[in-house]
Amino acid sequence: MTFVVTDSCIRCKYTDCVEVCPVDCFKEGENMLVIDPDECIDCGVCEPECPADAILPDTHADAERWLALNTKLAALWPVITGRKEPLAEAEEWNGVPDKLPFLSEKAAVPA
């Protein structure tokens, strides 16, 4: 079992979840985070930390499509191990539904 990040993260990219992850399973894209399902230990500490409610267990009814996306992008993106500021537009985009069309599949640019 694993947890997955949904499109609620897109254009927000809060990293509160990253800060509490004991195994560094988060990967960072340009405008979203994902969880590497091969690294996640299913501890669940990340889920309540997300201000965008973007994290679900893979047993959730809507998780299958997000598991596929997380798996794909985790193979492409670098690990993120610490907290960063959310995207500038995070407050504006937090809570906006159906953000998948706004996903950038580019990896995060190193700071």
Rank of each mutant, 00 (worst) to 15 (best):
E49A: 02
C21Y: 00
W77P: 01
N94A: 15
V96T: 13
L33N: 13
M32K: 08
D38K: 13
K106N: 09
E19V: 02
D42Q: 12
R11I: 01
V109L: 11
A68Y: 00
P97G: 02
D16H: 07
D58A: 14
M32A: 15
R83M: 11
E49V: 05
C12Y: 06
C17R: 09
G29W: 09
A75S: 12
D98K: 06
D42N: 13
C46G: 12
D16E: 02
E85M: 08
E105Q: 08
C46H: 01
T71F: 03
I41S: 02
R83L: 13
P57E: 12
A68I: 11
K72I: 06
D7I: 00
S104T: 10
T15P: 09
V96I: 15
S104H: 06
I55N: 02
H60E: 12
V96C: 03
W93L: 08
E28T: 05
C50V: 10
L69R: 04
P78T: 02
E85N: 09
C9W: 07
E64S: 10
L73M: 15
I35F: 14
A74F: 00
A88L: 06
A108T: 06
D7N: 04
A107T: 09
I35A: 10
D24L: 03
D62H: 01
V45D: 09
E47V: 07
P86M: 08
E49F: 05
E85P: 03
H60G: 14
V109G: 01
P48W: 00
M1W: 07
T71Q: 06
G95W: 15
K72R: 14
C25A: 12
C25H: 00
L73F: 03
L103G: 06
W77T: 04
D42G: 15
C12L: 04
D16T: 09
M1G: 11
V79W: 08
E89C: 13
E19C: 04
D38P: 09
C50R: 03
G44T: 07
C50I: 06
A88R: 12
W93H: 05
E28I: 04
D42V: 02
P22F: 05
D58T: 07
P101M: 10
G82R: 09
D36R: 08
D36W: 08
D62I: 02
G82M: 01
E47S: 11
V23S: 13
G29V: 02
P51N: 10
A68E: 06
A108S: 15
V79T: 15
C40K: 13
L73Q: 08
E19F: 10
D42A: 13
E89F: 04
P101A: 10
D7C: 00
A68R: 07
I80D: 07
A68V: 14
L73T: 15
P110R: 14
L103Y: 04
G82N: 03
A52K: 03
C21N: 01
G95I: 14
D62C: 00
Y14C: 14
K27Y: 04
D62M: 08
I55H: 10
G82K: 11
I80P: 11
V5H: 01
I80Q: 00
E91D: 14
K27D: 10
W66K: 01
D58N: 08
E49T: 02
E30T: 11
C43K: 00
F26C: 03
L56I: 12
M1E: 12
I80Y: 03
L103N: 03
P86R: 04
K72W: 07
N31F: 06
L69M: 05
N94L: 12
D38L: 14
C25R: 02
